[in-house]
């Protein structure tokens, strides 16, 4: 039965094979924030020119990216949730987690600023005020790295959003859709700077809090353990992993700018 299904699938792949499907490539599971900032559009051609390896990016939330790695559907990960990453490695799914780069989160909100948090430097403090004012807040609610960071901030602010209330809205969507929604309902939101910088539908949204240490957003690169899944492309994904955390990758990250502003800062050691 399985053999038959595989044979059928072979026909499918013939029917839909794009020209040059036998190219050398790896699959990288990463986050919507990196994809949507345009960073990959800048990095990947450089890497391909140097190594001949194409990197195919599947952009999902960090939670789903880790899941893809667990199932062996990606060869490498570039994600931002330190706790989740460490767990992923500890459970044997990943190898050699490295710091690669960081950017930071910003708190954005409507220009009317009903919670009065504009210009603040303390994110937790701002969150406290938003909760006290019951000003609408749009949460990713999708178990992504950004969502996990947001939950840590609420915890720090001493606000129980589970008990939340009408003002706290869990959207269950990516960064972009969340910003679209926040713009539409004049809500506050936590966003990564990369997505925010390239986001076009801001309406009345603007940055209200930035520069807090607590808004630090580090990204890590992890190799998927080939011992768990034979089909993982160990050698090519390692080449990517080393390039990204090496001097050339770090320089490329530093060179990526939107509107003259550097969005990601290499911090590989």
């Amino acid at each position: 039965m399985k053999r038959l299904l595989l044979a059928v699938l072979a026909v499918f792949s013939l029917a839909a094979a794009p020209a040059g499907a036998e190219d050398r490539f790896i699959t990288l599971a990463s986050t919507t924030s990196t994809e949507q900032s345009g960073l990959f559009g800048h990095l990947l051609p450089l890497f391909k020119a140097e190594t001949g390896i194409e990197v195919r990016v599947v952009a999902v939330g960090t939670g789903q990216a880790l899941k893809l790695g667990e199932r062996g559907d990606a060869d490498a990960l570039l994600v931002h949730d330190r706790a989740g990453e460490d767990k992923f490695v500890a459970e044997g799914f990943g190898l050699d987690r490295r710091d690669v780069m960081y950017n930071d989160f910003v708190v954005v909100g409507p220009s009317a600023d009903p919670a009065g948090v504009k210009g603040g430097k303390d994110a937790a403090e701002a969150f406290k005020k938003i909760a006290a004012a019951k000003a609408p807040f749009a949460s990713r609610g999708d178990d992504s790295g950004t969502h996990r960071s947001e939950l840590r901030l609420w915890k720090k602010a001493g606000v129980d959003v589970k008990a939340g209330g009408e003002w706290y809205r869990e959207l269950g969507s990516g960064m972009g859709p969340t910003l679209n929604t926040a713009a539409g309902m004049n809500a506050y939101a936590l966003a990564d700077r990369g997505t925010w910088a390239s986001f076009k539908n801001r309406q009345s949204l603007a940055i209200v809090v930035e520069g807090d240490r607590a808004l630090f957003n580090p990204y890590g690169s992890i190799l998927v353990n080939p011992e768990k899944h034979k089909a993982v492309k160990a050698a090519d994904s390692k080449a990517w992993h080393l390039w990204l955390s090496g001097p050339k990758g770090q320089a490329a990250i530093a060179a990526f700018k939107i509107g003259g502003e550097q969005l990601f800062f290499g911090d590989a050691r």
């Binding site: 399985k2 299904l5 595989l6 699938l9 072979a10 499918f12 792949s13 029917a15 839909a16 094979a17 794009p18 499907a21 699959t27 195919r56 599947v58 667990e70 199932r71 062996g72 559907d73 899944h229 089909a231 993982v232």
Partner: peptide, 24 residues
């Protein structure tokens, strides 16, 4: 089609062929 799934060895996930299967 996931590598951890029953037909993972076909290596079709994240290819146009996989999309054809789903849409079919």
């Amino acid at each position: 089609l996931s590598r951890a799934g029953p037909l993972g060895e076909a290596g079709l996930l994240f290819t146009p062929a996989a999309m054809v299967v789903a849409q079919t």
